[in-house]
Amino acid sequence: MSVARFWRNQIARYNLVGTKCKKCGEHFYPPRNMCPACRRDGQIEDFKFNGHGEVLTFTIIHTAAEGFENQTPYVLGIIKLQEGPSLTCQIICEPESVYIGMKVKPVFRKLGQDGERGMIYYGNKFIPEQC
């Protein structure tokens, strides 16, 4: 990932900041700058999610992409936030303990890095709520 590409979404990744349409109440993550329902009548504003949600579905990665080899096996899931939007994210737990409907909360972790010399990318992953 290029430095600039990550930086553009940095606030959203660090603090789970998305957007909300004041007209219809729909929440968006990642942030949208236009409401697909209200179109030009929509009123978009920044919205910080509280981060609490549940696991909609998950998979366990045994053969990882470059840079993630030392983390296998790890859990990748789709998290439905309390306010509505869903996002794909790593879930930090033992693979045998994850289940659909598990309540989760965010934690700040390293998302990746460009080798030994490049940028380190940070953001939120999720852990079980009872941790």
């Binding site: 934690v107 700040f108 972790r109 390293k110 998302l111 940070y122």
Partner: peptide
């Protein structure tokens, strides 16, 4: 620390 934890996290 976990594999994805460092001083910043």
């Amino acid at each position: 620390p976990d594999v994805d934890e460092d001083t910043a996290t």
